[in-house]
Nucleic acid binder design. Sequence first.
DNA 1: CTGAAAGCGCTTACAG
DNA 2: CTGAAAGCGCTTACAG
Lengths: 338, 338
Amino acid sequence: MERKVSLKDIAQKVGVSTALVSYVLNNKRENRVSKELARRIRETAAEMNYRTNQVARSLKTNKTYTIGLIVADIANSFSSGLARIIEDEAEQHQYTVIYSSNDENAHKCGKLIDTLLDRKVDGLIIAPPAFSEHQLIYLQQQRVPFVLVDRYFPDLPTNYVALDNYGMAFKGIEHLIQVGCRRIGMITYKTELHHLQERRRGYTAALKKHRLPVSKKLVREVDIKLETTAIENAIDSLLSGEEPVDGLLFSANNIALAGLKYISTLPVKVPDQLAIVSFDETEALEFFYAPFAYIKQPLPEMGRLATHLLLESIEKGSATTQVNLEGELILKKPYAPR
Amino acid sequence: MERKVSLKDIAQKVGVSTALVSYVLNNKRENRVSKELARRIRETAAEMNYRTNQVARSLKTNKTYTIGLIVADIANSFSSGLARIIEDEAEQHQYTVIYSSNDENAHKCGKLIDTLLDRKVDGLIIAPPAFSEHQLIYLQQQRVPFVLVDRYFPDLPTNYVALDNYGMAFKGIEHLIQVGCRRIGMITYKTELHHLQERRRGYTAALKKHRLPVSKKLVREVDIKLETTAIENAIDSLLSGEEPVDGLLFSANNIALAGLKYISTLPVKVPDQLAIVSFDETEALEFFYAPFAYIKQPLPEMGRLATHLLLESIEKGSATTQVNLEGELILKKPYAPR
DNA sequence: CTGAAAGCGCTTACAG
DNA sequence: CTGAAAGCGCTTACAG
């Protein structure tokens, strides 16, 4: 690349010290210099196409105006939707964002955190994978500002912005009950992740409230590395036997995608024989043949709030804030051929 | 944040110069120092949890190991899919990536470029919007390494990795002809973007080759800001009149999504009365009720190649490379209810 | 061969 | 009030 012009170049041309140029261009100590001189400095800087070297500034000020974003997988629409909101919000405050994907792997997440800290990001927004508590504790010890999104650990007093997972699962199940389901199953990830536990807790609580059968057999857990066949098997077994389920809750968008794909090949009729509610929205479900319901997460609010909390924490070192947002239960009508 | 330990701290503890510590930790000039001393330095660094400050290193070395990625919209699955590949590829080479979305706006793209250059990224991967030629020319003048993806400007001798848009459109149309279409329309964006012009050129050439009607009326252009109603109107008018189309090419995933959504509400039968081929794949089409075809872009290859070319350009300042990759015509069977 | 100094491009506390 | 120096944390060319 071409050598860029520096403060020194401008200073020499105008015949002042680099310090003065810095003051003028940063609009600091304006009273130190005559309007005329300030004008000449600004003019020269513009003529020479001066742009401040943020790396040098960062080294001195110990501030990079960069935030690190760690999601599960940027290629997933949930993550990339969030990333877009955060980008826009950060940009408004002159922050730039570095992203990376942890693949639901705590070890990888730790390495990403190290890399981002080496690059001196001012703070982090993280959707933490299971078993990453110690990385977060480390961040707290180092007093690195960060806020969690989507997931959090109930025992860790960290900033977070997540869904009201318990409440939304409860609402989803009550919807199924209301449309007539009496035996409701759930397919979820086999994981310690608290937000998914909460969804399960909401599922169970709603069933209990309405005195419907609660049983371990009704809840099927699949590996978070998502094996399609595991989901298909889970559906098969829930739908077979003497008492097949007539309602089903999918606890995440990837499960819903694979599940609905499979269900659409089965003879079972949605929603008459099987009513469905799923967490997260995804374009993929746009064309599913039958009506079903999903719990829409308030992504814009989640992203914006997370960014705000982070910037506040960076700039003021504010207290811990924990937010569980309400989602929306959407009743999706099919785009059916006529 | 906590004050981090610096080379100086290690140097003091061990009783050597910071220079020596730097040499040892970077495995340079290994012969300058006894194995024993090197071991002690490394040990002390580990004990003190030393991590090198990349900002300081960057200022000195004029290298950030960061690449800037500018896409149309990171929330779009095409962009985020590409972003994921690039992330992985970059990570393997110790590079980190800053992303931003240009919203198909050349002015915004220019501002993003400035921001990224101020932060001294080592190079850029850009999916350029229409009318952004001058920003690219500026990059060339500044000798900033960059490679374009997805789009490019035929008159600008830049690195790029894109699809063989002409060839794939040609192939798509020949497919429609082969399944019996005789009057084939196209819905595309109203834009100067060369890659879309190429798709149109391929469409026309295939029709001509097979002596099928070519007419301006058969091609409908909608604004790239995507108004759903514009697409619906285009479809209405192509399907109405004395000679409705029996085949249709959608030139981008967003058009296909809106188009198929609308078509699924119409009485027209896909594929018997109307056969469809679309550019790009998107999960959204997973559940469309009827068979149709789409042109799958080789995202992994595109992302990997773009990253390789960029790193090569950064490290060796290599010659200009331009690649048009072949895609794949996929015949999609519906997941139909039985 | 090796140690100590210079310098990357900024910002700002401090001396005069 | 204002100018010139120190220093952020590194790397590496250079003097001895």
